[in-house]
Design a protein around this nucleic acid. Structure first.
Lengths: 146, 146
DNA sequence: GATGTATAGTTTGAATTCAAACTGTTTTTA
DNA sequence: TAAAAACAGTTTGAATTCAAACTATACATC
């Protein structure tokens, strides 16, 4: 029967994929982007390059203060800008710069390579099954939170 | 076909289980133990309450300097002690105190509850399958590292 | 045995994260 | 409309983590 080792395996896999992503970024010549900052860019690519801070926080599942930190780093390195909403001055929109858009293709490649590595030990059927099981467990947690 | 969302799901599940563990510790009245420190205790319970620092680092998959930090916190709170190996003075053994042994039962309960919550959306067969798939993927990563 | 290398662990500094307190703006309510 | 509450985001402080440099000890080789 079950070995109760899924939680440990998930911790292990989270760490390994994180390290692999960092390593892929480095070997693609990107030295000024951490994986967590990459998550912000990925969210922007999916949303026409423009999102309010609050949405970024929700999409990357980080505290809003963390998102302030992450976006400040991305601004430092020229990947994004911030601009205030003119109607509601509480809101700041994060938008991709040219440099930010410029690495979208690279990003897709890295994402593909990451997924190929991850899924490589599995058949197509097994990959599909794993996703279904993970989704089931993930949704089992009460306040889905995203 | 597959949706390439396993990596994101694993990140989500890692976070949720981590938060749930912290929450279980708090509601069991344990306020002076972080989840990562719990991992050190769990490793000790599995090894007669005595391990060299290096082994702790390997078992909890943390850098040795992190383990120094974690064990110092556990010593502060009275859960463990350190003692130098008399033969090889480079080696420090971490050992459980009475207080450390005292919460072993509680720890097992928390671990059980955590696993019940995690596996609850799955049938026995699905749970077993999920473990097998996760193991396959985990072993697919090159330098297993533990 | 002296010298060089490897090993175990600690210290220090930087990065990342969250929570709490705070600022400024908008909405609600009295 | 004035006061209160809610909201978006930032600042600050603490916790956790890793990597690099360091200390001390043990092993290897000459």
């Amino acid at each position: 029967m079950r070995k109760n080792n899924a939680i440990v395996l998930i911790g292990s896999l989270r760490e390994k994929t994180h390290l692999l992503l960092e390593s892929e970024l480095r070997s693609s010549g990107i030295t000024d982007l951490a994986a967590s900052q990459g998550a912000v860019l990925a969210a922007l690519y999916k949303h026409d390059g423009r999102l309010p801070m609050k949405e970024v926080a929700r999409l990357v599942r980080r505290d809003k203060s963390t998102v302030t930190y992450l976006t400040d780093r991305l601004i430092d390195n020229g990947y994004i800008q911030k601009e205030k909403d003119s109607a509601d001055k509480r809101i700041s929109y994060v938008t991709l710069t040219e440099k930010g858009w410029g690495i979208q293709g690279l990003f897709r490649e890295i994402s593909n390579r990451l997924n190929e590595t991850f899924y490589s030990p599995l058949s197509d059927e097994e990959a599909h099954l794993l996703e279904q099981l993970l989704e089931k467990v993930d949704q089992g947690f009460l306040p889905t939170g995203g």
